[in-house]
Design a protein around this nucleic acid. Structure first.
Length: 443
RNA sequence: GCCCCCAUGGUGUAGUGGUAGCACGCGAGAUUUUCAUUCUCGUAGCGGGAGUUCAACUCUCCCUGGGGGUACCA
């Protein structure tokens, strides 16, 4: 078995394309030599180093490793030219100057039958399509479908300038690479008979096809930028974890039998995956579920691991204890900084919170009592802080909420933060007392 | 226009010729110092119409809806 992933070099790795890559990778079982990466770039316009580099990065981030060096389709041009020449000399193709207008006119005049041209010795190269019979697409996911040859136009396989068209390029490249399984998006389904026709003219066998359903946005339309994150780069930038993305994407258009859980390790995925179980209908990409799943993955990370990822993402050193007290409160990496910036940037400026909490009856008294208790602490540890503060609440007959919220606003600036005892413990004696004093002053 | 594909709650899916399970979401409750987390309960579905059958969500056909293709794009 040999599968390939062949994205077009537009730079952004679409999540639909990423899912196809994932399926290919799972199908190859990650075995060496089984997954080849090819850049479809017959027109060469888009395969700039930047664009291609971005795709490599996205794939690497996702954890999908292909085998060996990626192949650039354009590099295979001589081979394509040779095949096209062969088709012409074998009588399977001819040169024609007919353009879209002629083709349309022909169809109108022939009851919508496919265009059939004559050899003019110049122009683009068109494949001769049989007038009768059917071309059968056999697809692991969709079963057999017959396409009538009579309806198919003699398709262009090379432009007038001699450059091959995509359909020839893929077919030839797959053949040369010994590809046995072609797993791609369903948008290629209707084009498959064309490739089969080329294969037939070449006298070569067809690979096994599997067309996976497309991904849609919440509005049921094809997933695009206006739906938010539509590329894996955007997912990464939004703070999702690659393993969560991988897990979530594997669930789109695919389900395990006899398994009600939706969490899979990569090993389980590798073991259980089968093309036969891939769904035929398009799936809607639901970022809320991804977010939920990502939160689960975040919480299962070792603190040191989470810290490393956050540091890498934020480009700054982070305190382990800060990461630890935040872990269960964030569902994406993105949510970390807003929740903990107060540790290094000082209290946030939230007048509404100050007014509401610090301005409340008894807030100052509560703060004062808390300050005194904290100031008297012999050692500044989480248990000590917690004991002291709970003690104040009990002794002063203050509802916990009415004691803790003022402290929170005093040190954080807003009403949302990690646990109050944890925050105080991590902030340290000096800073905590200073911030409480400042709050008392302001009030 | 023509060709092709698809159709289980809002979303992702499981499933069987005898009416549906799981997960997200959503709602309610519990825990709770905020936000979260966690736990409990609940909500909601086989697009429509014929046909086959004792019986269809499951098989067939039609319709509707959605999607894809129809390039000298990939």
């Amino acid at each position: 078995m040999r599968v390939r992933f062949a994205p077009s070099p537009t730079g952004a790795l679409h999540v639909g394309g990423a899912r196809t890559a994932l399926f290919n990778w799972l199908l190859s079982r990650g075995a060496a030599g089984e997954l080849v990466l090819r850049i479809e770039d017959t027109d060469r316009e888009r395969s700039t180093p930047e664009n291609v580099g971005q795709i490599f990065e996205a794939l690497e981030w996702l954890g999908i490793d292909y085998d060996g060096e990626p192949v650039f389709q354009s590099a295979n041009a001589p081979r394509h030219a040779e095949v096209i020449e062969r088709l012409i000399s074998g009588g399977h193709a001819y040169r024609s100057t007919a353009g879209p207008d002629e083709v349309r006119a022909w169809r109108e005049a022939h009851g919508n039958q496919g265009f059939r041209g004559a050899d003019e010795g110049a122009g683009a190269v068109r494949l001769r399509v049989p007038d009768a019979g059917v071309t059968i697409v056999r697809d692991v996911i969709r079963g057999h479908t017959e396409f009538e040859n009579a309806l198919q136009d003699d398709l262009v396989i090379a432009r007038a300038d001699g450059t091959p068209v995509y359909h020839v390029a893929v077919v030839v490249d797959d053949l040369d690479a010994g590809i046995t399984h072609v797993v791609r998006g369903a948008d290629h389904y209707s084009n498959t008979p064309k490739q089969l026709l080329i294969l037939e003219a070449l006298g070569e066998p067809a690979p096994i096809y599997a067309h996976v359903p497309l991904l849609h946005g919440p509005d049921g339309r094809k997933l695009s930028k206006r739906h938010g994150a539509a590329s894996v780069q955007e997912l990464r930038d939004a703070g999702y974890l690659p393993e969560a993305v991988r897990n979530y994407m594997s669930l789109l258009g695919w389900g395990m039998a006899d398994n009600d859980e939706s969490f899979f390790t990569t090993q389980e995925l590798q073991r259980e995956f089968s093309l036969e179980r891939v769904s035929r209908s398009p799936a809607v990409f639901d970022e809320r579920k991804l977010r939920w799943m990502n939160g689960r993955y975040v919480r299962e990370l070792a603190v040191a691991d989470l810290q490393a990822r956050l540091e890498q993402r934020l480009g700054r050193e982070l305190r382990r204890d800060v990461v630890a007290i935040t872990q269960e409160k964030i569902s994406t990496l993105d949510e970390f900084w807003p929740l903990t910036a107060f540790f290094v940037d000082g209290p946030a400026d939230d007048p509404a919170a100050r007014e509401k909490i610090l301005g409340a009856d008894g807030a100052s008294a509560a703060l004062t009592a808390a300050r005194a208790a904290l100031a008297g602490l012999r050692e500044w540890t989480l248990p000590a802080v917690e004991e002291a503060l709970r003690d104040v609440a009990e002794r002063e007959q203050i509802k916990p909420k009415h004691l803790f919220q003022p402290i929170r606003v005093a040190i954080v600036g807003t009403t949302v933060s990690p646990g109050i005892f944890e925050s105080v413990a991590v902030l340290g004696r000096e800073e905590t007392l200073a911030r409480i004093d400042a709050a008392l002053c302001g009030a």
